[in-house]
Design a protein around this nucleic acid. Sequence first.
DNA 1: CTTAGCACTCAGAGGTAAAGAGTGCTAAGA
DNA 2: TCTTAGCACTCTTTACCTCTGAGTGCTAAG
Lengths: 356, 356
Amino acid sequence: MELSERKKKVLRSIVDLYIRGAEPVGSKAVAELPDMNYSSATIRNEMAELTAMGYLEQPHTSAGRVPSAAGYRLYVDELMSDYRLSLDETRSISTAIEEKMQRMDKLVEKVAKMVSQATDLPAISMASRQGVVTVKRFDLILAGQGSFILVLLLSTDEVVNKLIKLPLEVSEADLKLLGAALNAAATGIPAGEFTQSLFDRVMGAAGSAASLAPVVLEFTLETLRRPGNTGIMVTGQHRLLDQPEYRDVDKAQRVLTSLDEETLANLPDVIRNENGTQVLVGPENVARELKDTSVVVTKFDIGDGMQGMIGVVGPTRMDYAKVTARLSYFAESLSKLFAKPEQKQLPESGEDPKEA
Amino acid sequence: MELSERKKKVLRSIVDLYIRGAEPVGSKAVAELPDMNYSSATIRNEMAELTAMGYLEQPHTSAGRVPSAAGYRLYVDELMSDYRLSLDETRSISTAIEEKMQRMDKLVEKVAKMVSQATDLPAISMASRQGVVTVKRFDLILAGQGSFILVLLLSTDEVVNKLIKLPLEVSEADLKLLGAALNAAATGIPAGEFTQSLFDRVMGAAGSAASLAPVVLEFTLETLRRPGNTGIMVTGQHRLLDQPEYRDVDKAQRVLTSLDEETLANLPDVIRNENGTQVLVGPENVARELKDTSVVVTKFDIGDGMQGMIGVVGPTRMDYAKVTARLSYFAESLSKLFAKPEQKQLPESGEDPKEA
DNA sequence: CTTAGCACTCAGAGGTAAAGAGTGCTAAGA
DNA sequence: TCTTAGCACTCTTTACCTCTGAGTGCTAAG
């Protein structure tokens, strides 16, 4: 059954008011809104019906109404007015993002921090690699007695390296031989196709350097297999305590705990299919602990088959319009940033360093 | 003035009781302890004196006593009984640490998680490089049209790399030339001595590849300068809310906020000089917000001029004996783990990969 | 269909009294 | 001289009460 225009207006007003005030909304408050041309009694009737229909709830008889999960759902899907970012907001977001940054995952993490700050809520973030990765090129560099550096250039243009120390002498010639063998047999091969026969082939071709091959191949396999996900990061947990609904320590505790743990690990599954910004309202959520908690997440591409996800966790009452707006803007900025890094200065490049 | 044995005993009992109960301790409770052979009145007298001496405090007239900062200090320094880790505890700690791990900082972070779990308190961690770093060796690898990989082997045996993309064609010969120039002029040089004349020298020696030199040198300088610190990580914040003293949301909020922020940035300074496990009691602490909060930290060497730090943050009342024991054990295990990695399997080596 | 009015409900604030914990001091006992 | 029992006193905590105010649902009039 479709809601009347007036009901929608009332519902929207209630959610809006509740978002600001975090307190049950009474008929009078709604009636006093500037563009609400009905008396509180009329509003009361509408509210009674909305309650019967399940869009509103009443904590106790003499309290105002609070939106139910269904109410929020409707609000998010249909009623929510677009929140326009002010010029100031966009500006500060943009300049913050443009800061030169290095590692992709660090960047996403850093952005999450900014999101958390911008929304005054805890933020979650994740960077993940999508699709299959292969090695584009192997390089082996002699690095002294019994040690050499293995450098892998991946199909994603990531560069990965490892210093390998062995209890046996390694010669330049051996490395060359092994390098050639690897580049011939193991480039362009996804982790799934690293079979025994591949190992054999490389070892055969590597001649005197055959004994080095297993170490190298194993590391390579490990690298290719490495789940592309950087794991979910959570930042700004403390901001949750700013929210009136978490003045109750036990509640806050429960939510914070499930944020910290691996509870969020299955979040990606929930989100995977959809694209863009999406809102998970309370009960729809993964963990039981997150009952009156909502999650707003957004996904974005960052090129080279990598994907990022940033999101915000907060009370179901949170200001969806604002949060969604901010989040989308961040995501978009990030996508753009990664889409055309070549337009930047010389020293800019896709990849990066930093080690153990 | 030295305390009488009995006073010490009373003080220790009070701290112990307070650690368990988180509530002011009365004379009766102390008198009822099994090995306390005095009546509550006697204890009361002792307590009055200890209060006068500043080791105890009284929240209000009719409440029991609470240890003052000085009281804790004394407790930690002299009175605390050794907490012996049970076999179970050591075993679970050891096996957890022994898990094969990759990046040093990730490892330290992971250990922090375990510490947090083991102590039921938030944990902080940091990995830092000590002393001056130089480049041991430069390598340049051609990686396609207009791009090459720069690989730096550092004095710490870390390997750092960067994929550099340039809008100009690069030849194998150029790279060789540049590599030679770099290895001749810029190895063994700390960041502080990267002068203009060094730049000039490399560029002069690089001939046709001179144009590539600035990018490479800048990145190198950046790498060497990069503060060795991985930044302080905080895990398990939510556990703070388990502690009765943080049932007050505002308080918890304040502490959590200052944990999250850069407040901890100057913690290293406080700790730098000392070695081993140390306890910072309340007021001694860095941030004002951490007033009735204590920090127990421990530092340990992990070879190659790297140092680690793990610690625990909790109410001043925390169980110092237990926490200190756990922490020391973790630190020791980590030190050992890093001290002799060669005893492990072949593929084990000092360094590692992963990029972004 | 809208609105004014009214009786009713119920959470929360404020105030008071009783209970309970712990103290300091005094005086008696070892 | 040191220890301990006893007691008056202080002060927090808790329970309980009342009162207030917000908000409701219903009814009847416009």
